[in-house]
């Protein structure tokens, strides 16, 4: 199962530390997390389900803002970070 890590700026919304959840894409894995932490949704996704413009998605350390629906392996590490743009 992929492992998800979230920027510390969102720590008031979910527990600290990585979360390992089922999911074959970053979006599917994120949806698993959102089941338990629904308030997190609007912080990462806009009202149409798109990744917010100034949220950075890393897949195994590579910046992949276009990668929300890309297949990922069970060992993949996914990071949702705060971009330096948008501040």
């Amino acid at each position: 199962m992929p492992t998800l890590t979230f920027t510390r700026h969102l720590q008031h919304l979910l527990p600290s530390g990585p979360l390992t959840v089922p999911g074959d894409t970053p979006r599917a894995a994120l949806e698993q997390v959102l089941r338990d932490y629904p308030l997190l949704r609007s912080y990462l996704l806009d009202e149409h389900g798109g990744l917010r413009k100034h949220v950075a998605l890393f897949i195994d350390g590579e910046l992949r803002r276009d990668g929300m629906d890309q297949p990922v392996a069970a060992t993949t590490k996914i990071d949702f970070m705060q971009a330096l743009s948008g501040g």
Partner: peptide, 26 residues
């Protein structure tokens, strides 16, 4: 919020406690 989108917070007691409520969706 420049990164995490618009948010709305409500206090029922003049700022002593706050809760996040919903934002409109277009």
């Amino acid at each position: 919020d420049g990164h995490f989108g618009p948010k709305l917070h409500l206090s029922e007691d003049a700022g002593a406690c706050w809760q996040e409520v919903a934002v409109p969706a277009l």
